[in-house]
Computed example of a mutant assay.
Amino acid sequence: MSETRIVPSADRTHWRGEGLYTRQSMPFTGNFDLGENAHGQLLVHNDDLIDPGSGVDRHFHRDVEIVTWVIAGEVHHDDSSGDSGVVRGGQVQAMSAGNGVTHREQNPRSTRTVTRVLQMWLPPDAPGGAPEYRTADVPIDGRGLVLVASGIAGREPAVVVRNDAAALWAARLPAGSPWRCRQRRTGTCT
């Protein structure tokens, strides 16, 4: 088993843009090779704060699975395939970019609060396919790990992604609580 590397928030790459502040677990902003900096299947892991009326303007993606978990606030999503919606705190969206999609994500001006999201990118099992957008609630209740997103057969995640080797788990731990996994495959952690 490989050694787990913990990257505290203060040690992450920090980047500030107009209305957006991001903490990146792997280098992402600028000219970085996502595959070279990946953590296994995980290409990107950002913890973002988005000011009201700000966000990410229209941009293009192809052949990537993007999981956006809204921790607090809300994000409005719309894309070139005609999908749109609001993802609120406690919900997750998964977007399969497939053969190509242009989209944007914004914290609506009307919210008056900063939105916090965790965004993770995964490679798809195979290139191409139609773009797809899914949203679901993430029932984080303090009892342990919750499977947020996965494409592994036999699993029941909040949202399915097109990657049969990935499982993204989440848990809410009390401040200062130790965390360790005894059995990674079953998700039994204390």
Results as ranks from 00 to 15, higher is better:
48 D>I: 11
31 N>F: 14
46 N>P: 02
29 T>H: 12
51 D>S: 10
41 Q>V: 00
23 R>L: 15
49 L>I: 04
43 L>C: 01
21 Y>T: 15
40 G>K: 00
40 G>S: 00
14 H>E: 14
23 R>V: 12
16 R>A: 08
22 T>A: 14
15 W>P: 00
43 L>Y: 03
42 L>A: 02
34 L>I: 14
44 V>G: 03
22 T>I: 15
47 D>L: 02
45 H>D: 08
37 N>I: 09
36 E>G: 06
46 N>I: 13
39 H>S: 07
28 F>T: 15
32 F>V: 15
23 R>M: 11
44 V>I: 14
16 R>Y: 05
21 Y>K: 14
34 L>Y: 12
28 F>W: 14
21 Y>I: 15
37 N>F: 07
27 P>V: 11
26 M>Y: 00
45 H>L: 05
43 L>M: 10
46 N>R: 09
25 S>K: 01
37 N>A: 13
42 L>P: 00
22 T>N: 11
14 H>F: 13
30 G>W: 12
24 Q>I: 08
12 R>S: 05
30 G>K: 13
44 V>L: 06
25 S>A: 10
17 G>Y: 14
25 S>Q: 05
38 A>C: 10
51 D>Q: 03
27 P>W: 07
12 R>I: 06
43 L>T: 06
31 N>K: 13
47 D>G: 08
28 F>H: 13
40 G>F: 00
20 L>S: 08
27 P>L: 06
14 H>N: 07
15 W>F: 14
43 L>F: 09
46 N>H: 08
15 W>G: 07
34 L>Q: 09
26 M>T: 06
13 T>H: 08
28 F>D: 12
38 A>I: 06
28 F>L: 13
44 V>R: 01
45 H>V: 04
36 E>A: 12
45 H>T: 15
45 H>N: 09
42 L>V: 04
39 H>F: 07
47 D>E: 10
40 G>A: 01
35 G>I: 03
32 F>P: 02
32 F>Q: 09
50 I>V: 12
15 W>A: 10
38 A>W: 01
14 H>C: 06
24 Q>L: 06
50 I>K: 02
33 D>A: 11
44 V>N: 02
